[in-house]
Design a protein around this nucleic acid. Structure first.
Lengths: 185, 185
DNA sequence: ATATTGGCTTTACACTGTCAAGATGACCTT
DNA sequence: AAGGTCATCTTGACAGTGTAAAGCCAATAT
């Protein structure tokens, strides 16, 4: 029996590992509870039910996601080409989607939620990508450029998530780089 | 009891209406069977199981999807601006995703399948969009442009599928038009 | 006429999420 | 120190899920 107060975090961790190991269909309430070492009714007490638990897992997922984007950017010299920054955060976005496809799907499946914590971290994640578009805005309006970059990144991530080759192998960088360069002109 | 031989089509139609009326969670094997007026074991006989039935529904979805794209293009005068053609097929893509969100999700969820019929119609659908990029390729390589346009369209569709306003209302066309124009230069 | 096959139903099973009821134990009040 | 309260968690039951085995029935083939 786990220590008092650590059950919620335990459930979230169990869900994340289950998602990474067995994919979307492996994420059932009862299996999460079993892996966390609690009864199948414990999750309801902390998260209301499966939807609430999924929100919590998605929230944690976005935190990891955002952290990876920020970390990747920290590896780029501050005085580097702005395009290098934008490309880096884009590739980190796509890489996360490939490496943790089931979690990525869950995160965006849960987005139409009423959980304000989830909505906020999702927005904060977007901001990381959006801010790297600023150097390319120039005299144009910012919104279309930001929207199109986000759309292209997300679309590319979605369409390349389930490729047969292992998620560890990088995406065809040069191809995506060319596409991105078209966009930011 | 339905006529002989029409059960498969009946099951697919039942699944499509169920998906449109009640969304993803409404699509259960037993409810599909009930709506089609057959027992809950009938689907397995024709489609092997729920995954096979989902493949069949997704296949029908792609046929409708492709038909809508083609029909939308037929409404554009042949001598019109190539950008009008590209924009039209893009907006039809996004409109379908918004109007039939649950079906759209199912279609792309099923894409990593072994069902060659599904894979083929999915590819044929992509080709409709891809071919409208040709006038913008000019001296550049075609692949990055095609990939980026598809990615942006798909990403925009995904990110705008669950917006609160009703799916009948059009997306902010001007915003997307600006974004697309950036891409094709 | 008899056997075979395809199409479908019935039945059973393991598993799912949710709910109600109860057990346990820490904390607080008096 | 005794009693109460409340959050935490378990147990048990329930309706619903997908799948598999067995059987039924009509059409077809031999």
């Amino acid at each position: 029996m786990p220590l008092r107060g650590e059950v919620p975090q335990l459930l979230i961790s169990a869900g994340l590992s289950l998602l990474d190991e067995e994919g979307t269909p492996g994420l059932t309430l009862r299996r999460i509870a079993a892996r966390a070492g609690v009864s199948h009714a414990a999750p309801a007490h902390h998260f209301g039910g499966l939807p609430g638990l999924r929100d919590a897992i998605a929230t944690h997922g976005f935190r990891s996601f955002r952290h990876e984007l920020v970390t990747a950017l920290e590896g780029v010299p501050a005085d580097a080409d702005p395009f290098q920054h934008l490309l880096t955060v884009n590739l980190a976005y796509i890489g996360f989607a490939r490496r943790r496809a089931a979690l990525f799907r869950l995160m965006f499946d849960q987005l139409p939620t009423e959980d304000s914590t989830l909505r906020e971290i999702a927005r904060a994640t977007y901001v990381v990508l959006r801010d790297r578009c600023t150097p390319f805005v120039r005299d144009r309006p910012a919104a279309p450029l930001q929207t199109s970059v986000w759309s292209m990144t997300h679309g590319f991530a979605m369409l390349n998530m389930d490729q047969p080759y292992p998620p560890e192998s990088p995406v065809q960088v040069s191809s995506y780089e060319d596409a991105l360069r078209l966009l930011v002109g």
